[in-house]
Nucleic acid binder design. Structure first.
Lengths: 133, 133
DNA sequence: ACTTACAAGTTGTATATACAACTTTGAGTT
DNA sequence: AACTCAAAGTTGTATATACAACTTGTAAGT
């Protein structure tokens, strides 16, 4: 057979991401935030005030997924949406504060993951990213 | 800063897996099956009759996740469960037939992904797997 | 045989995700 | 100005996932 079933690239990447997220979650426990929402907060921190759609574009997330996640973060007053139909979003002051609180925990998780992956593993990750799209 | 937020290993792996799964889903459309359920079917095809827990162990999935996914596949009569509390599971004849139908579609998706990744990308994937656990 | 402890399954709950269908808005065309 | 169309947002629906709490069965020790 040309490919072996257990070499399915989709399932292997899914598994890798579950493992990595598991490590990250260990450090987020106290802060009542999911790793996904953390990623959106961080992305918005990087982007500054931006259109909602841009978030999905950067993260390769479907419009509807972004819409719902943003809604959850808005409910917690971590982000602000302009009230146009196509809103611009940005972190609130509280959101920025929360990001600053999260970063040290996230750094602990990254330390562990980076140590596991090593420079070579990080290059592998970049390599995959550059090839897959 | 030691790490950059946008280099978060968790979110990058999540993104990669979403992209890969998107490619796979394109080929599964006609067959009314999700890429995750496909993975479980393929895993069970490899394992043969086995304890339910083994599936989660191989795929790094939580017990409850396996439980629910298995239930969905059982409802479709693609798998069979012994009726002990800790059941053994296996593909039904119908399940095996379905796997044979799915494989060509899956191969098409793998052809595309393997072409994108190339030998070098596949080595990168293996490299990540060997390092991350 | 009884008890205890642990391992594995299930269920409740919340979030994450995608796709389809519908809605809204703005931009171009006439 | 009215029309049309495309782009982006939202909602309905189904699955995927994890964690916590509870359940159940088995194995070990007495």
């Amino acid at each position: 057979m040309k490919h072996e079933l257990k070499h399915c690239i989709g399932s292997r990447l899914r598994r890798l991401s579950r493992i990595a997220d598991g490590h990250i979650r260990k450090f987020l426990g106290a802060h009542k935030i999911t790793e996904n929402q953390m990623t959106i907060l961080f992305t918005m921190h990087e982007l500054g005030r931006t259109e909602q759609g841009k978030v999905g574009e950067v993260l390769c997330l479907e419009r509807s997924t972004v819409s719902r996640n943003i809604k959850l973060l808005e409910k917690r007053k971590l982000i602000l949406r302009s009230d146009e139909y196509r809103p611009e979003v940005e972190l609130t002051t509280e959101g920025k504060k929360f990001v600053k609180i999260l970063i040290p925990e996230w750094v602990k998780a990254m330390d562990i993951l980076v140590e596991k992956l090593n420079d070579d593993g990080l290059r592998s990750l970049q390599n995959l990213e550059s090839r897959i799209q």
